[in-house]
Amino acid sequence: MLVALYLSFTDTNLSNAVGAPVHNVGLNNYASVLTSTDFSSAVSTTCWIIIPAVVIEMVLGVGIALWLNRPRRYARGMRAVTLLPYLLVPVVIGNFFRMFYSAQFGQLNYYLSLVGLPAHAWLTDPATVRWAVVALEVWHTTPFVALLCLAGLAGMSPDPLEASMVDGANAWQRFVHIVLPDLLPILGAVLVLRAMDAIQLFDEVYVLTGGGPGRLTSVINLYLYQFGFRQFQIGQTSAAVTVIVVFLAALALIAFSIMRSRSRSRERNSGLG
């Protein structure tokens, strides 16, 4: 990372000749990264895609976990089945969804036609292409959220729940007043984990759209790939990485300290060490 920091002040380009002079360009790389429309659009595209994706995943994941948590026949089998999407190779997922959304060969359009809906070019229409990526990401990672929530639920004491049932609380009241507060710490942890991972989104989008149409699905990692790996402009890429890491570190630091202060106050309240 220190190397990256140094490089970010130079005009290093790996595709130059070995031993070609490297110039110190000061803050120029930062200036051109911060003013570049490609960079700003990559950042906004990433937010546009991962915020809905993570929110939907969390809601669905909690719902699925609650549903799976009740004792039921086949519960174990269902748990294993719902985990499947998380296990597939991301490149394959991208490829599958490309076929699934396809306007010509698309299975999605076929199923829609069964209920009388018209065919749609999901990956070309600017209004739907980002949602197509969101849906892919939700499909891929909801099982992970559900699994962690399920783990949290499994570790809970059933006593308060039973007590509230005796008190006649309905399902929603039970969820809001008893389950949710207990689940909150784990949800916090899952949120942080997912947010971190979602920023790394690359393989699937690279296969699905290549960042297009226009720059509608050029997420940060695609942008870095383009600059760093295809154009080998390591100086500028390092600057972009530094900007991103500083920004994320700040976010993480805030999240970290909030979590710490919370868990401390919880420890005080519950009187445990």
Binding site: R98, A103, Q104, G106, H120, W122, L123, L208
Partner: peptide, 9 residues
Amino acid sequence: APGDALSAD
């Protein structure tokens, strides 16, 4: 042309 021309290679 097919609707997904913009993702066609």
